[in-house]
């Protein structure tokens, strides 16, 4: 349910369930997005009451938060004033940023402490729009990314790996690297197997190892061109050792699970584990890593 949630290491502003895209691997269910609950006006006032000293990181998410652009932009202005030191992560599909009326209000609110994370699923409109099941979404997202260029905000592109874009992962990294705009980081994301992703797992699931293998060439290309890359939600045993330095322990603690076999793994403590849902569905087979002397 949308609302404002203060956790020990994050203040989460969950704006709305609704989204103007309809990605095949969305971890939210179609039902909740159709229901489209949105934060009520009085819920926003919580931002004025939370102690700024307790907040270091803020996540603004949805659905698509800019579907309620008025309140989201007002909240950003408030955050800038009340939480000037906090790191702010905005999860958006970026399409709203292509709307000049939104961009013109948003840009002056952005600082170096703000990061906009925008999913790009493919190197071209044809496949990207098929995955989002939304015509023009690719063109709009790219235009949105370009619109952010004059701001000091960090721009993160997120590539979610699944069967549909498996062979296009490396080309996607290359396209984002060569886009000639100010993308600061490109992350490869392993699916969270809930909602639509779980419902359509038969046609979407791809083994983590296969995803990393396919993306590897593009990842190295991006890194060589000075753009940071991170691997999110991948257990260490699914990633070749050479890419370990960019594996992030990204799954939130309450969703992390390990397999029984993980108990024999030398890297158990270093590893970010896998999603609860991935484990439940029995989709990934762990390969315990032997201690290296």
């Amino acid at each position: 349910m949308p609302g404002i949630f203060l956790e020990p290491d994050d203040l989460c502003v969950y704006v709305t369930e609704a989204c103007n895209s309809n990605c095949v691997m969305c971890p939210m269910s179609l039902a909740s997005r159709r229901r489209g609950l949105t934060m009520a006006p009085e819920q926003w006032s919580a931002l004025k009451e939370i102690d700024p000293q307790a907040v270091f990181h803020i996540t603004i998410t949805g659905g698509e938060p800019f579907l309620d652009a008025r309140n989201t932009l007002a909240a950003l202005a408030l955050i800038r004033e009340r939480f000037p030191e906090a790191e702010v992560l905005i999860l958006t599909n970026g399409r709203a940023l292509a709307v000049p009326e939104i961009a013109s209000v948003l840009l002056p609110l952005l600082t170096e402490r703000v990061c906009l994370a925008i999913p790009i699923h493919a190197p071209s409109a044809e496949l990207h729009d098929r995955i989002t099941q939304t015509p023009h979404s690719f063109a709009q997202a790219i235009r949105g990314i370009r619109a952010l260029a004059p701001s000091p905000a960090r721009i993160e592109a997120r590539v979610v790996a699944h069967r549909w874009n498996l062979e296009q992962l490396s080309p996607t990294f290359r396209m984002l690297t060569d886009l000639q705009t100010r993308i600061t980081v490109v992350n490869l994301i392993a699916m969270e197997m809930t909602g639509c992703a779980a419902a359509r797992r038969g046609e979407l699931w791809v083994d983590y190892r296969e995803a990393v293998r396919e993306a590897r060439e593009g990842i190295l290309y991006t890194v060589r061109h000075g753009i940071d890359v991170g691997l999110y939600n991948f257990p260490l045993c699914s990633v070749p050792r050479e890419l370990w330095p960019i594996v992030k322990n990204s799954i939130s603690p309450r969703k992390i699970r390990y397999d029984d076999a993980c108990e024999n793994c030398a890297e158990r403590e270093a590893c970010g584990g896998m999603f609860y849902s991935t484990r439940e569905l029995g989709l990934f087979r762990v390969e315990p890593i032997e201690a290296r002397r």
Partner: peptide, 9 residues
């Protein structure tokens, strides 16, 4: 005490 990877992290 743990693995090198853990140390790095």
């Amino acid at each position: 005490q743990g693995s090198f990877e853990q140390y790095i992290r």
